[in-house]
Design a protein around this nucleic acid. Sequence first.
DNA 1: AACCTATCCAACCGCACGTGT
DNA 2: GACACGTGCGGTTGGATAGGT
Length: 267
Amino acid sequence: MGRPPCCDKVGIKKGPWTPEEDIILVSYIQEHGPGNWRSVPTNTGLMRCSKSCRLRWTNYLRPGIKRGNFTPHEEGMIIHLQASLGNRWAAIASYLPQRTDNDIKNYWNTHLKKKINKFQTAVESYVTSSDSSTSTYHEMSKINQSASTIYASSTENISRLLEGWMRSPPKTSQHKHQQEQQDQDQDQGEINVLQPYQAMADHEEVVEPVMSSFEIHQADQPLLVDHHQEDMKPPFSVIEKWLFDEGAVQTDNLMELTADCCSQSLF
DNA sequence: AACCTATCCAACCGCACGTGT
DNA sequence: GACACGTGCGGTTGGATAGGT
Protein backbone atom coordinates (compact mmCIF):
# COMPACT_ATOMS: atom_id res chain seq x y z
CA MET A 1 0.00 0.00 0.00
CA GLY A 2 2.06 2.89 -1.22
CA ARG A 3 1.51 6.53 -0.82
CA PRO A 4 -0.61 7.98 -3.61
CA PRO A 5 1.11 10.45 -5.90
CA CYS A 6 0.46 14.06 -4.97
CA CYS A 7 -0.63 15.00 -8.48
CA ASP A 8 -3.12 12.29 -9.40
CA LYS A 9 -6.16 14.30 -8.40
CA VAL A 10 -8.69 15.11 -11.08
CA GLY A 11 -8.56 18.76 -12.09
CA ILE A 12 -4.92 19.31 -11.19
CA LYS A 13 -3.31 21.38 -13.90
CA LYS A 14 0.04 20.35 -15.34
CA GLY A 15 2.43 21.88 -17.80
CA PRO A 16 3.90 25.34 -18.18
CA TRP A 17 2.90 28.03 -15.73
CA THR A 18 1.13 31.12 -16.99
CA PRO A 19 2.14 34.63 -15.87
CA GLU A 20 -1.19 34.89 -14.08
CA GLU A 21 -0.44 31.78 -12.05
CA ASP A 22 3.03 33.10 -11.27
CA ILE A 23 1.61 36.34 -9.99
CA ILE A 24 -0.92 34.55 -7.81
CA LEU A 25 1.78 32.33 -6.36
CA VAL A 26 4.21 35.17 -5.76
CA SER A 27 1.54 37.33 -4.18
CA TYR A 28 0.64 34.54 -1.81
CA ILE A 29 4.22 33.85 -0.82
CA GLN A 30 4.90 37.55 -0.43
CA GLU A 31 2.12 37.63 2.11
CA HIS A 32 2.68 34.34 3.89
CA GLY A 33 6.27 33.44 3.12
CA PRO A 34 7.44 30.20 1.52
CA GLY A 35 6.56 26.93 3.18
CA ASN A 36 3.45 24.98 4.06
CA TRP A 37 3.07 24.20 0.40
CA ARG A 38 0.15 21.87 0.97
CA SER A 39 -2.02 24.83 1.82
CA VAL A 40 -0.91 26.96 -1.13
CA PRO A 41 -3.25 25.50 -3.79
CA THR A 42 -6.28 25.63 -1.54
CA ASN A 43 -5.58 29.14 -0.29
CA THR A 44 -4.74 30.59 -3.68
CA GLY A 45 -7.20 28.72 -5.84
CA LEU A 46 -4.38 27.57 -8.08
CA MET A 47 -5.23 24.31 -9.79
CA ARG A 48 -1.72 23.04 -9.12
CA CYS A 49 -0.43 20.47 -6.70
CA SER A 50 1.66 21.66 -3.78
CA LYS A 51 4.76 20.10 -5.21
CA SER A 52 4.36 21.97 -8.47
CA CYS A 53 3.98 25.24 -6.55
CA ARG A 54 7.11 24.56 -4.53
CA LEU A 55 9.14 23.68 -7.62
CA ARG A 56 7.92 26.72 -9.47
CA TRP A 57 8.95 28.90 -6.57
CA THR A 58 12.32 27.35 -5.84
CA ASN A 59 13.41 26.90 -9.44
CA TYR A 60 11.97 29.95 -11.02
CA LEU A 61 10.23 32.62 -9.00
CA ARG A 62 12.41 32.78 -5.92
CA PRO A 63 14.08 36.20 -5.61
CA GLY A 64 17.74 36.44 -6.44
CA ILE A 65 17.88 33.67 -8.99
CA LYS A 66 20.40 34.43 -11.67
CA ARG A 67 19.34 33.34 -15.11
CA GLY A 68 21.11 33.40 -18.39
CA ASN A 69 24.54 32.30 -19.46
CA PHE A 70 26.95 30.78 -17.00
CA THR A 71 30.29 32.53 -16.60
CA PRO A 72 33.49 30.56 -17.13
CA HIS A 73 34.08 30.86 -13.41
CA GLU A 74 30.73 29.29 -12.70
CA GLU A 75 31.46 26.55 -15.21
CA GLY A 76 34.71 25.85 -13.46
CA MET A 77 32.98 25.81 -10.12
CA ILE A 78 30.41 23.33 -11.34
CA ILE A 79 33.01 21.04 -12.88
CA HIS A 80 35.12 21.26 -9.77
CA LEU A 81 32.23 20.56 -7.44
CA GLN A 82 30.76 17.83 -9.63
CA ALA A 83 34.11 16.09 -9.54
CA SER A 84 34.15 16.39 -5.78
CA LEU A 85 30.54 15.77 -4.91
CA GLY A 86 29.18 13.80 -7.83
CA ASN A 87 25.67 14.44 -9.08
CA ARG A 88 24.59 16.04 -5.83
CA TRP A 89 23.12 19.03 -7.53
CA ALA A 90 21.56 20.52 -4.44
CA ALA A 91 24.91 20.44 -2.68
CA ILE A 92 26.59 21.99 -5.70
CA ALA A 93 23.89 24.63 -5.90
CA SER A 94 24.57 25.58 -2.30
CA TYR A 95 27.93 26.92 -3.44
CA LEU A 96 26.30 28.89 -6.22
CA PRO A 97 23.43 30.53 -4.34
CA GLN A 98 22.16 32.36 -7.38
CA ARG A 99 21.69 29.15 -9.35
CA THR A 100 19.14 26.45 -8.76
CA ASP A 101 20.00 22.79 -8.63
CA ASN A 102 17.76 22.24 -11.62
CA ASP A 103 19.56 24.93 -13.58
CA ILE A 104 22.96 23.51 -12.73
CA LYS A 105 21.84 19.99 -13.52
CA ASN A 106 20.47 21.08 -16.89
CA TYR A 107 23.59 23.03 -17.69
CA TRP A 108 25.77 20.10 -16.78
CA ASN A 109 23.77 17.64 -18.86
CA THR A 110 23.45 19.87 -21.90
CA HIS A 111 26.77 21.69 -21.96
CA LEU A 112 29.48 20.67 -19.56
CA LYS A 113 29.22 16.91 -19.92
CA LYS A 114 29.60 17.25 -23.66
CA LYS A 115 32.48 19.67 -23.31
CA ILE A 116 34.32 17.31 -21.02
CA ASN A 117 33.71 14.38 -23.35
CA LYS A 118 34.95 16.40 -26.28
CA PHE A 119 37.96 17.54 -24.35
CA GLN A 120 38.84 14.01 -23.36
CA THR A 121 38.37 12.85 -26.93
CA ALA A 122 40.55 15.67 -28.17
CA VAL A 123 43.33 14.88 -25.74
CA GLU A 124 43.11 11.16 -26.46
CA SER A 125 43.29 11.78 -30.18
CA TYR A 126 46.32 13.96 -29.60
CA VAL A 127 47.98 11.30 -27.52
CA THR A 128 47.32 8.54 -30.06
CA SER A 129 48.32 10.61 -33.07
CA SER A 130 51.83 12.05 -33.22
CA ASP A 131 51.02 14.77 -35.77
CA SER A 132 47.56 15.65 -34.66
CA SER A 133 48.29 18.99 -33.06
CA THR A 134 46.66 20.96 -35.87
CA SER A 135 43.43 19.00 -36.03
CA THR A 136 43.25 18.84 -32.29
CA TYR A 137 43.68 22.56 -32.09
CA HIS A 138 40.78 23.03 -34.48
CA GLU A 139 38.67 20.71 -32.39
CA MET A 140 39.60 22.62 -29.27
CA SER A 141 38.64 25.85 -31.00
CA LYS A 142 35.24 24.43 -31.84
CA ILE A 143 34.78 23.36 -28.26
CA ASN A 144 35.66 26.82 -27.06
CA GLN A 145 33.10 28.32 -29.40
CA SER A 146 30.46 26.17 -27.80
CA ALA A 147 31.54 27.51 -24.43
CA SER A 148 30.02 30.84 -25.24
CA THR A 149 26.58 29.33 -25.52
CA ILE A 150 24.00 31.76 -24.33
CA TYR A 151 20.54 30.90 -23.32
CA ALA A 152 18.17 33.68 -22.62
CA SER A 153 15.25 33.28 -20.34
CA SER A 154 11.96 33.86 -22.08
CA THR A 155 10.46 34.80 -18.79
CA GLU A 156 12.43 37.84 -17.80
CA ASN A 157 9.06 39.52 -17.85
CA ILE A 158 8.24 37.60 -14.72
CA SER A 159 11.40 38.92 -13.13
CA ARG A 160 10.26 42.42 -13.88
CA LEU A 161 6.89 41.63 -12.39
CA LEU A 162 8.73 40.54 -9.30
CA GLU A 163 10.96 43.56 -8.99
CA GLY A 164 8.72 45.14 -6.40
CA TRP A 165 8.67 41.94 -4.42
CA MET A 166 12.45 41.64 -4.58
CA ARG A 167 12.83 45.09 -3.08
CA SER A 168 10.94 44.12 0.04
CA PRO A 169 10.67 40.37 0.56
CA PRO A 170 10.10 39.02 4.07
CA LYS A 171 13.73 38.12 4.75
CA THR A 172 15.17 35.73 7.20
CA SER A 173 18.61 36.74 8.37
CA GLN A 174 20.20 34.13 6.13
CA HIS A 175 18.02 35.13 3.24
CA LYS A 176 18.95 38.73 3.85
CA HIS A 177 22.61 37.89 3.86
CA GLN A 178 22.28 35.99 0.60
CA GLN A 179 20.38 38.82 -0.98
CA GLU A 180 22.99 41.31 0.08
CA GLN A 181 25.65 39.10 -1.39
CA GLN A 182 23.66 38.79 -4.61
CA ASP A 183 23.15 42.51 -4.79
CA GLN A 184 26.87 43.00 -4.40
CA ASP A 185 27.56 40.45 -7.07
CA GLN A 186 25.15 42.08 -9.44
CA ASP A 187 26.81 45.40 -8.84
CA GLN A 188 30.10 43.82 -9.72
CA GLY A 189 28.66 42.34 -12.85
CA GLU A 190 29.55 38.77 -12.00
CA ILE A 191 29.57 36.41 -9.09
CA ASN A 192 32.22 36.44 -6.45
CA VAL A 193 34.05 33.30 -7.40
CA LEU A 194 36.03 33.24 -4.20
CA GLN A 195 32.99 33.13 -1.98
CA PRO A 196 32.09 29.52 -2.78
CA TYR A 197 35.65 28.44 -2.14
CA GLN A 198 35.57 30.26 1.15
CA ALA A 199 32.39 28.35 1.80
CA MET A 200 34.21 25.15 0.89
CA ALA A 201 36.90 26.00 3.37
CA ASP A 202 34.23 26.54 5.98
CA HIS A 203 32.53 23.23 5.22
CA GLU A 204 35.34 20.78 5.03
CA GLU A 205 33.20 18.10 6.55
CA VAL A 206 30.90 18.39 3.59
CA VAL A 207 33.32 18.70 0.73
CA GLU A 208 35.38 15.66 -0.05
CA PRO A 209 39.05 16.25 -0.76
CA VAL A 210 39.27 17.39 -4.30
CA MET A 211 40.81 14.84 -6.59
CA SER A 212 43.87 15.26 -8.66
CA SER A 213 43.46 16.55 -12.17
CA PHE A 214 41.29 14.59 -14.50
CA GLU A 215 39.87 12.24 -11.98
CA ILE A 216 36.51 13.58 -12.99
CA HIS A 217 34.36 10.56 -12.46
CA GLN A 218 31.50 9.51 -14.65
CA ALA A 219 28.06 9.95 -13.19
CA ASP A 220 27.45 6.20 -12.96
CA GLN A 221 30.78 5.44 -11.37
CA PRO A 222 31.71 5.70 -7.73
CA LEU A 223 33.70 8.70 -6.67
CA LEU A 224 37.37 7.91 -6.39
CA VAL A 225 39.23 9.91 -3.83
CA ASP A 226 42.96 10.06 -3.59
CA HIS A 227 43.49 10.10 0.12
CA HIS A 228 47.17 10.77 -0.34
CA GLN A 229 46.23 14.24 -1.44
CA GLU A 230 43.86 15.05 1.36
CA ASP A 231 46.18 17.66 2.77
CA MET A 232 46.62 19.39 -0.51
CA LYS A 233 44.83 22.58 -1.41
CA PRO A 234 42.30 21.81 -4.11
CA PRO A 235 44.18 22.37 -7.36
CA PHE A 236 42.23 23.38 -10.39
CA SER A 237 42.00 20.44 -12.69
CA VAL A 238 43.41 20.50 -16.16
CA ILE A 239 40.00 20.85 -17.71
CA GLU A 240 39.24 23.80 -15.48
CA LYS A 241 42.44 25.45 -16.61
CA TRP A 242 41.29 24.88 -20.10
CA LEU A 243 37.86 26.30 -19.39
CA PHE A 244 39.26 29.32 -17.63
CA ASP A 245 41.65 29.96 -20.48
CA GLU A 246 38.68 30.10 -22.78
CA GLY A 247 39.63 31.31 -26.19
CA ALA A 248 43.29 31.23 -25.43
CA VAL A 249 44.15 27.60 -25.99
CA GLN A 250 47.37 27.24 -27.84
CA THR A 251 48.82 24.09 -29.26
CA ASP A 252 51.75 24.18 -26.88
CA ASN A 253 49.30 24.61 -24.04
CA LEU A 254 47.53 21.49 -25.15
CA MET A 255 50.82 19.66 -25.28
CA GLU A 256 51.57 20.91 -21.82
CA LEU A 257 48.19 19.84 -20.55
CA THR A 258 48.46 16.48 -22.25
CA ALA A 259 51.86 15.92 -20.73
CA ASP A 260 50.37 16.92 -17.40
CA CYS A 261 47.62 14.35 -17.82
CA CYS A 262 50.01 11.64 -18.92
CA SER A 263 52.32 12.33 -16.03
CA GLN A 264 49.46 11.54 -13.71
CA SER A 265 48.75 8.20 -15.38
CA LEU A 266 45.25 9.14 -16.22
CA PHE A 267 45.03 7.37 -19.55
C1' DA B 1 7.97 26.49 -47.82
C1' DA B 2 7.88 22.10 -45.72
C1' DC B 3 9.79 18.67 -43.33
C1' DC B 4 13.18 16.47 -40.31
C1' DT B 5 16.50 16.41 -36.60
C1' DA B 6 18.95 18.13 -32.68
C1' DT B 7 19.09 20.92 -28.75
C1' DC B 8 17.54 23.13 -24.67
C1' DC B 9 15.16 23.70 -20.46
C1' DA B 10 10.88 23.89 -17.54
C1' DA B 11 8.33 20.74 -15.36
C1' DC B 12 7.12 16.18 -13.82
C1' DC B 13 7.86 11.75 -11.42
C1' DG B 14 9.15 8.77 -7.92
C1' DC B 15 11.91 7.82 -4.13
C1' DA B 16 14.22 9.23 0.23
C1' DC B 17 14.31 11.57 4.33
C1' DG B 18 12.80 14.28 8.41
C1' DT B 19 9.29 15.33 11.62
C1' DG B 20 5.13 15.04 14.26
C1' DT B 21 1.64 12.12 16.26
C1' DG C 1 7.92 1.52 16.42
C1' DA C 2 4.52 2.58 12.87
C1' DC C 3 2.33 5.63 10.20
C1' DA C 4 1.11 9.95 7.72
C1' DC C 5 2.53 14.03 5.98
C1' DG C 6 5.56 17.58 4.07
C1' DT C 7 9.58 18.49 1.75
C1' DG C 8 14.09 17.68 -0.73
C1' DC C 9 16.46 15.67 -4.34
C1' DG C 10 18.01 13.49 -8.72
C1' DG C 11 16.58 11.42 -13.01
C1' DT C 12 13.70 11.82 -16.84
C1' DT C 13 10.38 13.63 -20.11
C1' DG C 14 8.01 16.48 -23.40
C1' DG C 15 7.22 20.74 -25.76
C1' DA C 16 9.27 24.68 -27.95
C1' DT C 17 12.61 26.25 -30.90
C1' DA C 18 16.66 26.52 -33.89
C1' DG C 19 19.16 24.72 -37.54
C1' DG C 20 19.74 21.80 -41.49
C1' DT C 21 18.14 19.58 -45.82
